[in-house]
Amino acid sequence: MDDRPLMSADSVTCRFRGTTACRDVSLDVYAGEVLGIVGESGAGKSTLLHCLAGAVQPSEGTVTYADAKGHDHAIHGLSESALRQLSRGDWGFVHQSPYDGLRPHISAGGNVAEPLLRCGETRYASLRAAARHWLAEVELDPERLDDPVRTFSGGMQQRVQLARNLVTQPRLLFLDEPTGGLDVSVQARLLDLIRQLASELEVAVVLVTHDLAVVRLLAHRLAVMRQGEVVEQGVTDQVLDDPQAPYSQLLVASELRS
């Protein structure tokens, strides 16, 4: 791991009319690591993730991204096109619902090829080859290349979403409950795949979940959120074995009981 973070949030606060969805959050994401963000429903995990990914403008605070050349970008000060370029080329975002991240009536291959098309690829053969390659990487049957993704199961759709977000070889991948709503066995296989790909491709991952078992399996480091605030962060094993904040203790205790 590099000693300089890939992305840093500094005192990020995000309000929606009445509610403060996240408050004064500071955290770092390092190259090649998996950072888990856990917390109960409504804790502000998704809001924070969208702030990091530049999709939601924080009310206060900054998010800084260091690109491959080592240049820092305050992402919320970027022009629309500069931000689009980063989020297309350098980042990926996997949504909890495949329908937020896929085009259901477009083929699996088309869904995977789209980010390349939007980065300017104009050769059909390259698009085909990339679609084939990445569907294989997420262990989908190449025979289904031209089937519309609405005909796929939920777990398979998440695999397509993963492939679509890896095809541009991003440096940073945001995952918002990527296994939510899936059967336990399907979940386990998908998590395994994510872990394997993240380490193979050396992509940094920010993973949001409310499931401690998921972060135990995947995350190197962990941030625990409650009511919009990060109440504790650190190396996953340390936080889970010896939680300091009362809320983390409660969270770990309730996991052991269930």
Binding site: E80, L117, L145, D146
Partner: peptide, 22 residues
């Protein structure tokens, strides 16, 4: 409008991709 402003015609090519693939 945003796509025209950015000259982002990847989506239009996606429609062509689907035709050629199918």
């Amino acid at each position: 409008r945003r796509l025209h402003a950015a000259g982002d015609y990847g989506l239009a090519r996606l429609a062509l991709y689907e035709q050629v693939a199918r």
